[in-house]
Structure formats: C-alpha cells, structure tokens
C-alpha cells in the first residue's frame, strides 16, 4: 500500500446514489439467479399486490458490498454483511447509500449502512470489513 489511510469511528462514507431503473432490478435479479416473477414481471407483481416489480434482496446485498469496497479500496475484504429490508426499491426511484464507521479494531472496521429511497429506508445494515487485508 502506498499510503496508509486510517479510519476511525464516526467517519462518514461519501453517499452513493443508485438510480433504481427497471434494468438494474432485472439485471440484478438475473445475475443473482433469482427468477421470482416479482423482480421482472410487472403484471405478475401487481397480481401479487405490489405496485410494480421491486429489487431483490441479493441485489441490495451486492450494492451494499460494492458501496463498502468502493470506499475502502480493492484491498478491503468483506467479512460480514447483515442487512434488513424496509421500503421496496421500485423502478424510477433513487436510493442513496450512506455509511458510518461504528468501530475499528485492528484491521477490522464495522460500518452502519443505510439506503434510503423516496418512500423510506430501503435497507439498513452492518458490514464488517477487513481493511487492507490480504484477499486470500
């Protein structure tokens, strides 16, 4: 590592804005091999009481992971990702991910993550990440 960067509890991560497009929802569902119709078929989603298709939890999980490693860099290794979903991510919405470092112990940081969309908190979670650790 060229420069040693340190993190401390209370550090805030720059927000990441995710445009929740229909394409993202469908691409995320298929890339995660989730063929539940509510993630790609608006008609069937409506028949099940949803106003539209909505993002699957695996995509949310992937986006949260990306948010953390984008910030801590390619040397960072995810150890734990625990998320809870709230307001669904429907097409046309924007989700803004924000994060705050809650603890740092040796090489391991914990980050509290929130992804808020136009109707509320889509995701709240905690990520444990090994900072600058070896990837294998």
């Amino acid at each position: 590592m060229s420069a040693v960067r340190t993190w401390a509890p209370g550090d805030e991560l720059p927000p990441l804005k995710i445009q929740v497009t229909r394409t993202l929802i469908v691409a995320g569902a298929i890339a995660s091999r989730d063929y539940q119709d509510v993630h790609h078929d608006a008609e069937l989603a409506k028949a099940k009481g949803s106003p539209d298709i909505f993002m699957n939890i695996l995509t949310t999980n992937g986006l949260v992971g990306r948010y953390i490693t984008d910030h801590f860099g390619p040397g960072a290794v995810l150890r734990k990702v625990a998320i809870r979903l709230g307001a669904p991510n429907y097409p046309g919405d924007t989700m803004v991910l924000t994060g705050k470092v809650t603890s740092v112990e040796e090489n391991t940081a914990q980050v509290a993550v929130v992804g808020a969309n136009g109707i509320g908190k889509h995701v709240t979670g905690t990520v444990t990440v090994l900072i600058g650790g070896e990837a294998s």
């Binding site: 691409a27 995320g28 298929i30 890339a31 995660s32 695996l58 992937g62 992971g65 990306r66 040397g75």
Partner: peptide, 30 residues
C-alpha cells in the same frame, strides 16, 4: 455479469486471480 449489474468495478473481482464478490454467496446456491 454480477459486477456489471451491480456497477462494481473492484479490480479484485477480475483478472487471473479474481475472487468472486463475497456478496454473491447466495447466488451460487440458487
């Protein structure tokens, strides 16, 4: 495909010694 969908450009996930994004864990079991 996962990285394209997520917009994840982490270099750790490509190249000769690439690792899979850890958050893909469940996807391998689907």
């Amino acid at each position: 495909h996962w990285c394209e969908a997520m917009g994840d450009t982490n270099p750790a996930y490509s190249g000769p010694d690439a690792m899979a994004p850890p958050t893909m864990l469940q996807a391998w079991t689907m």
